[in-house]
Computed example of a mutant assay.
Amino acid sequence: MSWIKKGFSIKQLFFIMVGTGIYAFGLNILIIPNELMEGGVTGIALLLNYAFNLPPSYTTLFINIPLFYVGWRLFGKQSMILTIFGTVSLSAFLFLMEFSINNNWIQPFENNDYFLTTLYAGVASGVGLGIVFRYGGTTGGADIVARAGYKLKGWSIGKVLLAIDFMVIGASIFYIEKEKILYTLVVVFIAARIIDFIQEGAYSAKAFTIISDKSEEISESISNELERGLTLFMTKGAYSKKHREAVYCVVSRREIRRMTVLIKSIDPRAFIIISDVHDVLGEGFKEEEV
């Protein structure tokens, strides 16, 4: 079975490593020295570092290990491979950065101009995570919790991620200055915008229209692997006069690469249209209160 059939390639693994390397650089050179924060499991690792001086390279990995087990049981091996690879890669780069700083090979960027530091930190985080997401990886943690909440309880993925980030950043008020929490929010905003840009647009979702002779197999795989709802409708080729079922599905920006690889692994000749979606309401996305 080829690497593409397995759902990932050497190119993906390489760029996930590049992305986690950039993200680790931003954390150790910009965010930690200036006592800024992050959300999710990375934010918990930073809190442990500020409170007990524990290295994030270890805590990031240790916190994720039980989450790997949960994800493996709920979503299967195939779905978790790139997540585990991304998380281990991040921990490895964090360790290398910590080792380099401790040996004075590189120097942290400490500056009284917090606006400039915030800008650089947001760009580094956004570029790093954007590359990771662009090539189908994640850095584990909150993503696994959110997907588990959706699968088991039907909770909105976006709201679970937001709640986790809010709790982690809120808890930092006991360890860092209030002013730096406000700067952290700027970092998170800048990073989110850059992630959107790298993920081929400033929108939170993409709509896939897939025309293929294997529409049933494709729709079943999308439903099982990505757990997204689908719509099937009949189409007719103007030239061939041939009737085919088309598949319509909306996915989050983090799933664009996985969706494309999944479709091509089933039907390399599938015709795929990817459209920007300005706003999405419903299960798995934002749910509007009535």
Rank of each mutant, 00 (worst) to 15 (best):
S2W: 13
L13A: 12
F14K: 05
F15D: 05
I16L: 04
V18S: 04
Y23V: 03
Y23S: 03
F25V: 01
N28F: 11
N34W: 10
N34G: 11
N34Q: 09
E35P: 01
E35T: 05
L36P: 01
M37P: 01
V41M: 12
V41E: 04
G43R: 00
L46H: 06
L46R: 00
L47T: 11
Y50N: 08
S57I: 03
Y58N: 05
T59G: 02
Y69Q: 03
G71A: 09
W72M: 12
R73I: 10
S79E: 15
S79F: 15
L94F: 03
L94A: 04
M97W: 11
E98C: 02
F99I: 05
N102K: 11
N102E: 14
N103K: 13
N104F: 10
Q107L: 07
P108F: 08
P108S: 08
N111R: 02
N112D: 15
G130C: 07
G130H: 07
V132Q: 02
G137Y: 05
G140L: 09
G141D: 12
G141C: 08
K153H: 14
G158N: 07
K159C: 03
L161C: 11
A163R: 00
M167W: 15
G170S: 14
K180P: 02
I181A: 06
Y183F: 12
T184P: 00
T184K: 01
V186N: 01
V188Q: 11
A191F: 01
A191H: 06
I194L: 04
I195M: 07
D196M: 04
I198W: 12
Q199M: 13
Y203S: 11
A205H: 08
A207F: 15
T209K: 03
D213C: 08
S215T: 14
E216V: 06
I218Q: 01
N224Q: 13
L230W: 06
T231S: 09
V251D: 08
R254M: 14
R258A: 09
L262T: 02
L262S: 06
S265M: 06
I266P: 02
P268A: 13
R269E: 15
R269G: 09
A270G: 02
I273K: 01
D276E: 13
V280R: 09
G282T: 10
F285I: 01
E287D: 11
